[in-house]
Structure formats: C-alpha cells, structure tokens
Design a protein around this nucleic acid. Structure first.
Lengths: 340, 340
DNA sequence: ATGAAATTTTTACTCCCGTAAAATTTAATC
DNA sequence: GATTAAATTTTACGGGAGTAAAAATTTCAT
C-alpha cells in the first residue's frame, strides 16, 4: 500500500534522502552521486512522485518553458513549423507552449501576455506583421529572449526566415525561360513577406527585360484559398489576366486559383493543350496534391526551425551578448511539378 | 516615475487597498464594491501590475487552465477544431493550453503528463485511439475532468463526436442513387472512427441490397494525402478498383486519391465524360478546393466544439455528478459538390 | 441617528520548492 | 590511516499569493 506522495518533503522521507538533494536531483540527475541517484530512482518507481511545477517556477527566474507564437495555427505552413519546433524544444528538455493569434491583433496581444506571465526561458515568434501591435510585441521582446521567424518585424534578438529576393527570382526566371513571363497575383499583404515578394517579382522581371504585371485582388483574413478561388473565378471569367502564366504570392492562394481554373474549364499545366500555368511559393504540405501538382519554391522548413531554435538556445545559455540583431536568410529551392 | 510593481503587497501599497481585497478583485472584479474596483483599476493603469501566475496556482486546487489535446495538430480538421475550442475557452475566462501527440503514443503520454502537472480545471481530448496507451489516458481522466471528442476511447466523463452510422448511410445512399454503388477505400485504422465508418458502409450497402466492397490499402502515420495518392496510383494503374465510385474513409485520403486520378488522366466527377466518382468524409477545410470540389459528408465543427465545451464547463462547475457517461452524437450533413 | 448588513482591513498561516550556509558524512588519494 | 575533496544533511529563509478569522469600517434602510 503506497501512500500518496504530494510534496518533496514526503518523498524525501520515504526515499531516505534529504530534500535539498532530491531537489538537486530533479534539476539535474547527473549532479548527484551515482548511488544516491539509484536510491532516488528506486523510490521514484515505488511512489511515482512529481514535483509541483508552480512551486518550482516560483523560485526560478527562468523556467524551462519556451513559447511558440504563430499568427494562424490552422495554416499548414505554421502547423508544420510548430510541429518541428515543438519536437526540437522537447528534445532539448524544454516545455514548448503553443499560441496562435488567429489572425487578430487582440489575440496576439493576449497570447504574448499569457506567455509572458509564464516567465518563459525564451520565445519563438512569428508576428502577425502588419496587424501586429508593434509596441506590444516590442515590449514582450524586451522581457523575453526572442527569436523572430517568418515575418521580419524588427524586434527580438534575431530573425530567421526565407529570402524572397533569392526565391522569387528563381521561379520568375524559370517561368520566363519556359513560357510567357508571369504576372503576379497578390492579396492585401498580411505581413512584410508579402510586400517583399511583390518587390522581388518586380525587380526580377525588370532584370530580365520584362514588364512586371501585378494583380492585387481584394480579400481579408486568412482564408487564402477562398480568396484565390473567388478572385480567380472573377479574373478568369472577366478575362482580366494579363498573362497566361500566374505566379501566386503563396501556395494557398495558388491552390484556390487552380480550383477556379478547373471550374472554369481551363486546363492548368506546362504541357501542350494547357491554357494556364500557375505557380506558387512556400511548398505547403498540400502543394503536391493539387491537380496538377503545384510548381513552387520550397521554403526549407527544417532549416528555418533548426536555425531559429539554435539561435534561441544560444541566447538562453549565453544571454543577449549580440551587438547587432542578426538576420538569417535561408535559401529556397525551386520545385518543378506540373502546374507550370 | 512609476516604480516597478512586482508583488501584490507592493501594489496594495500604491493603490491604498489592502492585499486580501486586491486578491479578491483579481479572482472576480465583481466581488468588490464599485468604488473599490474603480480605485484598483485606476492604480492598475498607473502601475500595470499582474499577479504572478505560479504563486496563484500554488494555492488553488483548480487553476483556470483548460487543456486541449489532439492527435495531430497539422491535420486541418483538428487545427480547425482547436481554433474554435480555444476561442470558446478564452471567452469563458479560461486559459487554453494546446497539445499535440504528433501521432505518437509516447508523445501523447508526454502531453498528458505535462498537462496534468498544470493542474488544469478540465481537459478536452481527442485521443490517438488505437495507438493510445489506454491505462495512461484513463489515469489522466481520473485526475482531470475530461470530455473526450472525435475518437470514442471509453474514458472521461463524456464523449462528443459525429455519428458514423448516420453520416455514412447518407453518402452511400446518395452514391447508390446517382450511379454505381461505391467501394470503400480505407487505410489501416488509426482510431475507432475508421472502423465504425467501414462497418457503417458495409451495413448501409447491405441494406440497399448491394455487395459491400472494402479496399484496405497500406500506409502508416498521418500522411493521409500521400497514402491516398500513392495507393490510388497503384490501384488505378493495376485496374484493381472494383467500382467506378470510390468512397474514401476521410477527405484527406480522398484529396490524395483525386490527385492520383488526375495524374493518371482519369476525369473525376459525376457528370458525363467522367471515369470516376470520388467522395470523402469530414468536409475538411480544403475539401472545397479540390479539382473537382469534393462531395463529402460534413462534420458539424461548431456543434462538436459547442457541445464539448458546454459539457466540460458543466463538469467543472457541478463536479462529476453524472451517473453514466453520456455520449453525444452529432449529425452530419451531406455536401454535394462535383466530385461525385 | 441608529442598527444591521455588507465590505474591508489586520493578522497570520499555508502552498511547495529553490537555495544558501554551515555541519557532517562519504569517497578518493597516497 | 591521515588528508582532502566531494557529496549530503541540517537548518533556515524566501518567493507571491490564497484564504480564514476576527476586528474595524462603510453602506444603507429604517
């Protein structure tokens, strides 16, 4: 009959080890003598005690919590990034805590406040971007060691993200070589990336001696596919497309656009008999399952996660020694499928 | 010059109100006299103090945390459910905490342990199902008031989910009326739902006097689209499909299967000139953007979330008074698009 | 103004563990 | 076996707020 062990004091009794040593053990099992560790672990199996996390964190200035904040968790790009980050944090002995802003400034602020009240050791955040409450985000980063990823809001100790000025030329160049130069389909930008992509498109086209053609469609929120489809339907039926090659600002928009083309009876692809070529950006998890499979530029998910996490661990261990805020730009890769 | 307020004691000083009253205010602003509340709120704006969450939770047996645990957060079905649940919890004054098992038993156990150590007021969990460590999950639910959703593992105080024996006949009936009776495409079941759907299919077909044809394809993990596509390619090129109408166990599988059909040059749809009809189940957020748009049975996301959350709040307020574990089954709706 | 009811203040104890300092025990070295 | 170094035990305090009980104050109706 094993009595319920609630406190470290009680566990110290039943295990025959003093409380401070038990405490030491839980902070780092290697820090106690081998024989002691064994005795503790034997008792641990017999009584299954776990220290109270609130009491622990109350006395530690830095907890083992790492916050992960994304603008929209139901976006497969962020879902995947979060999945990878979570694992990396757990493997390193941290407890990741996930927050989503659900695309709203108020909720981003709430998330940051909730996270900050947890006194996390650090945070990995992808800000909303244009819709962020800049002061609020900055205030957060002043208190918590933070690596910003994806959307380069100028706060935090470091930034990790993809380089639009490398990725966009890649696909623009390919599209120009293989057919009619592309027009660029964008929606009102939700973050700095969207603007950079457009600018990179314009620059790339001009370099190649072509006339850039940007189509800005309306639409709010994070329903990118719906926007791509609705506006695609309109553009196609009104014959407003300035080119038969459409480069979409991101894959989700492209997925919607392809659906529109299909419903309008336009065959998408780079082969003969195709009326339209469509390309995207990001290599979303679902990009390979569109009809036809989407030609796109792949963001390097692993690299983004690895570099972000490494940088954060470095920050946590060595403090904010950095003179200037480093910006790590990660290369994208062209992924040729059959949509363009 | 506002000094930094760290403790409630200090805040009591600067606000001129006693600490116990401040404490009362933070637990429920309505519980103090109007004039007192105003004085506190004025001080609050001037000093921006927030109580330490660890100190708070240390003395409370039930926190304001609600855990949300799903088997795979990158699955859009769960991403969407989580999104809705999170909001409902926040609106009710709770702090939702999200966990994903990433499809692995070990990680599900880790998530439950991490959650339990937070002493949550309650939990909303969708267990892995067949891959769950049953004892571990049951142990969790014995300590934490829990509503189980989606996958009916027999633990917790209540279950909320869709009724496969209502939804599947709906689509089987439609498919039989409108063309060749469907075969059923499934992968090795990850949870009880998958089995129920197959059984419901068999039953529905027999009721209509047709011969049920179940195709079980291989594949592990949560890459449903990939499995659907790879196995679809094989089935189609080997001409192993027993029917021109394919009912997939879920939408993600269907999305992959449609991609396979497209790549094999088979036209999918219910119209003339189509070689194949494909239907799914769930109405995933992306189901409307396939080519052609997917005919499916829609799970009622809002209802699932609402009923789950209501039930949990009831549990939290009134304790576990329930004699028997209620199972709430929610109706699905047929969604006719053009894939079948 | 008076008495009763509702609030607030005072005081004090609790929650569970981190951690520092001094005293003691154990292990390692020659 | 004596010397030293390393680990453990003892003792004690602190962290920040919940909460109970008694005393003091405010509010409100009569």
């Amino acid at each position: 009959m094993k009595r319920k062990i609630k406190t470290m004091e009680e566990f110290a009794e039943v295990s025959g080890i003093s409380r401070p040593t038990i405490s030491k053990y839980f902070n780092d099992p290697e820090s106690v003598r081998r024989s002691t560790r064994d005795r503790i672990e034997i008792a641990l199996e017999a009584y299954s005690y776990r220290p109270n996390i609130f009491a622990i964190n109350q006395n530690r200035k830095l907890t083992k919590t790492i916050g992960i904040v994304v603008p929209y968790l139901a976006d497969p790009f962020f879902a995947e990034i979060v999945r990878l980050m979570e694992r990396r944090c757990m493997d390193a002995g941290f407890s990741p805590m996930i927050f989503s802003a659900h695309g709203e400034q108020r909720l981003e602020n709430d998330a940051l406040a909730a996270l900050q009240s947890q006194r996390p050791a650090g945070a990995l955040i992808a800000p909303l971007g244009r819709h962020s409450d800049f002061d609020s985000v900055r205030h957060f980063t002043e208190e918590v060691p933070t690596v910003v990823f994806d959307s380069n809001v100028k706060v935090g100790e470091a930034f990790v993200g993809s380089d639009s000025f490398q990725s966009i030329p890649l696909i623009v160049d390919y599209l120009c070589r293989s057919g009619e130069p592309p027009c660029f389909l964008e929606m009102p930008p939700v973050n700095p990336n969207a603007n950079k992509r457009r600018d990179a498109y314009t620059l790339a086209m001009e370099r190649l001696g072509h006339d850039p053609k940007v189509i800005r469609v309306d639409g709010k929120g994070w329903d990118f596919e719906r926007i791509g489809m609705d506006e695609g339907m309109r553009l196609i039926s009104n014959k407003e497309l300035p080119s038969e090659t459409v480069l979409c600002s991101n894959d989700r928009l492209a997925i919607g656009f392809i659906a529109a083309a299909y419903q309008q009876g336009l065959r998408v692809g780079h082969g003969a008999g195709c009326a339209l070529r469509v390309a995207g950006h990001d290599d979303h998890p679902w990009a390979r399952f569109t009809c036809p499979p989407l030609t796109t530029v792949a963001q390097d998910y692993s690299a983004i996660v690895d570099r972000s996490v490494e940088k954060l661990f470095d920050l946590i261990e060595n403090g904010r020694t950095q003179e200037e805020r480093p910006e790590v730009l990660i290369e994208c890769k062209l992924v040729l499928r059959s949509s363009a």
